[in-house]
């Protein structure tokens, strides 16, 4: 186990420089003393398991058959990467991520614009309301939307029967496209508030002076939006994008409740769950988990490097 060692020897502390005063040294020590436990716990509950998963992924290991555990090297990864199911689930996950995050960004921005100008009297009401989807348990929201659309308990078909393509007997969970539509809708409902709050905070930081100056120059609302507001809150937008994209890419609960992966609606996280928990193939499942972890890391690196998000700056590490 790696973690306990780390507690005892905080790694990156460079050997105390010769020029350091006792006070500095004491402060350093106190710093690690205070922050160390939290750091250690975080490593214990994530770094250790992921290393274990990497190790497990090199074996052919079924939970009910531990005696036949066998080292197979990287062949589990070969199996996964050459399997169309893996690529389908990557496709589904990316689709959900792109669609939900794009819609949420637009919707969340609109919400933020409304909220920042909102009358003082109703602002607390709106603020509380907007927090509710954020606070509701994902599984509960998934059940709620599923029941709304399902054939036996839902009301959507009878309410929206006048729309073309919707009839009393439209089975929303009977096809890939319609299932994914409902899944995305649920995700969007649940997480737009989070994005809108982040954007609201960014919006509040746009200097009023700039807006006024643009107004004096005769800029239209759109021009001000594109030239002043958005460039000035780029950091907030990027952080919101990054966090929501990573969150969306890990989608599991909603799919588990709504479709159980039927009709090719499996996300990558669900695929990992199916291999390890349902199929009991620890080796193969761990390999899927590791690949999911790598994908998430890749996305963050792309975001941070590609869009040059300085998290330490936006997150206030001054």
């Amino acid at each position: 186990m790696a973690a306990p060692t780390l507690t005892r020897d905080p790694p990156p502390t460079p050997a105390p420089g010769r020029g350091l005063s006792d006070r500095t040294r004491a402060e350093r020590r106190l710093g690690w003393l205070l922050a160390g436990p939290a750091f250690a716990v975080m490593l214990l509950v994530t770094a250790y398991p992921i290393l274990q998963a990497v190790y497990d992924s090199l074996f052919d290991f079924r939970l009910t058959d531990p005696t036949n555990r066998e080292f197979v090297g990287l062949s589990n990864y070969g199996v996964i990467l050459s399997d169309p199911i893996w690529w389908t689930s990557i496709g589904v996950t990316l689709l959900i991520t792109v669609v939900t995050v794009a819609v949420e960004l637009v919707l969340g921005f609109a919400l933020a614009l409304v909220m920042i100008k909102m009358l003082r009297a109703i602002r607390p009401v709106i603020r509380a309301a907007i927090l509710i989807p954020y606070a509701v348990i994902t599984v509960v929201s998934a059940f709620s939307w599923q029941y709304a659309f399902s054939l036996d308990s839902g009301f959507v078909n009878s309410w929206f029967g006048w729309l073309p393509g919707i009839a009393a007997d439209t089975d929303w969970f009977g096809g890939t496209a319609s299932s994914l539509f409902v899944v995305c809708l649920t995700e969007i409902w649940k997480t737009t508030p989070f994005i809108s709050l982040l954007l609201l905070a960014g919006l509040a930081q746009v200097p009023e002076v700039l807006q006024e100056a643009a107004k004096v120059d005769g800029a239209t609302w759109w021009q001000r939006m594109w030239k002043v507001t958005i460039p000035n809150m780029k950091a907030a937008i990027m952080v919101a994008l990054l966090f929501r994209s990573l969150d969306a890419f890990r989608i599991f609960d909603t799919i588990f409740v709504m479709t159980g992966g039927a009709n090719s609606t499996e996300s990558v996280a669900f695929l990992a769950y199916r291999q390890t928990i349902e199929r009991l193939e620890i080796g193969l499942g761990s390999a899927v988990s590791v690949l999911l972890f790598l994908s998430v890391t890749l996305i963050s690196v792309l975001f941070i490097k590609g869009f040059k998000i300085d998290l330490s700056q936006t997150r206030g590490d001054r």
């Binding site: 399902s150 007997d169 009977g174």
Partner: peptide, 15 residues
């Protein structure tokens, strides 16, 4: 098979 053929289980069918 009914409109819910691909999503119906025992319970939906008995309904």
């Amino acid at each position: 098979g009914g409109p819910a053929l691909s999503t119906a289980g025992e319970d939906e069918n008995v309904a």
